[in-house]
Design a protein around this nucleic acid. Sequence first.
DNA 1: TGGGTACATTTTGCATACAAGAAATTTACA
DNA 2: TGTAAATTTCTTGTATGCAAAATGTACCCA
Lengths: 228, 228
Amino acid sequence: MTAVSPTTIAERVVEAILAQKLSPGERLGEQALADNFSVSRTLVREALMQLQARGFVQVQPRRGWYVVQPSAEEARDAFAARRIIEAGILETAGRPMQQVIRQLRLHIDEEQRAIQGADAATRAFLLADFHVCLAENMGHRLLADTLRDLTARTTLAATLYQSDHSAEQSCADHASIVEALERGDAEQARALMLAHIGNVEEALETTPPPPETAPGERLRATLSPVQR
Amino acid sequence: MTAVSPTTIAERVVEAILAQKLSPGERLGEQALADNFSVSRTLVREALMQLQARGFVQVQPRRGWYVVQPSAEEARDAFAARRIIEAGILETAGRPMQQVIRQLRLHIDEEQRAIQGADAATRAFLLADFHVCLAENMGHRLLADTLRDLTARTTLAATLYQSDHSAEQSCADHASIVEALERGDAEQARALMLAHIGNVEEALETTPPPPETAPGERLRATLSPVQR
DNA sequence: TGGGTACATTTTGCATACAAGAAATTTACA
DNA sequence: TGTAAATTTCTTGTATGCAAAATGTACCCA
């Protein structure tokens, strides 16, 4: 297998979380991960420390590492943060957005293909990635990084609180946002984005089944790089 | 010495960076840090991986770890991100802010004391921390974390590009922002915040002396917890 | 049968050992 | 004396070893 740095491992785990191959609350055994990537626990631990700093995993001392299980409040926090950042990005949308719009359209095409063909894993990943792409293409690299983490958190919350929000709906929302941008109507794009985030947030069940204390073992061997 | 976890080490290093005890571009030797904290390189590496994920340090493979040296473009990016986030936070400022304002006033008092008495280190730290406090007190914990990293970056840029912006001016800006909030004039607060960030950004020399390739060795022993 | 204690197993936390690459220094030679 | 090759030293990258804590299991006794 090709060389695996701690950063690579961290990436793979994030992909797996976003693609719902790792559920919130799931335990991440150091040795299990090490075996999976054919490296020593040292590298795994370094990767996990990175992910801890980014808020993807928590560690309970001497107990183990767990995929974060956002509380309802933390989920609301993440949505609130996203609203501020994404609205802000669209507010400052300048004129020359030909290239941006082209890129986003390509992304939406990908989303649509995924909705028809691919698994829920890839769908969720792409739907979240749209927001990251938007930020990146608008020239906000740092905010794109932040959004990558925030969308991961909201996606996690969606699986945890059994969202029934449809991928089709999200994809349609994305399309109308891009249309507004194309018309040069940044204000409308902003409004649509806020509505979209609101829809997704409201699709979460407000009173969830008490987050099962995750006996979900088995670290599915599916930590391979995301196939798109 | 009391127990030092990787996270503790990371915190100390961040404090040292914010307090300008570590300059941008400065090399961080693993062994040097390990000796400093009386731990093994393992813990230091784990801490550095955390800091890498948060954008505080870079690693050049087989060469070493360095405090990030934001390019002019990256600095602009960080300011842009801060504008979006901080303006967004003030935009959504609700009514009941008694407690928030009290806290912020206390912080400003601290800033003023630091301006008269303390070293440049503590001053810079507190001035950046104001923005983190604001976010935190407004209930945006996640954005507060993000701002901690972003303000660190802009502070770094300020030392790197020889900002001549005065601490007094910043502190006065902070005070007028809080005053606007107290009047319930969120829109004004937002405008003042944008102006404040703009002032700080413009104080950076646009064409800096080519960032000296940092022969700055010597990892000052001053990684002790910040004294305030 | 139920409960509690002792023992075994597993897993994390941390240090250390060792290999490999980069930089610094010395040596060789023109 | 200056440049290039060779060697030494330093530093990072990764694995492994060991101790401590937590969990699981067997056993004993009432």
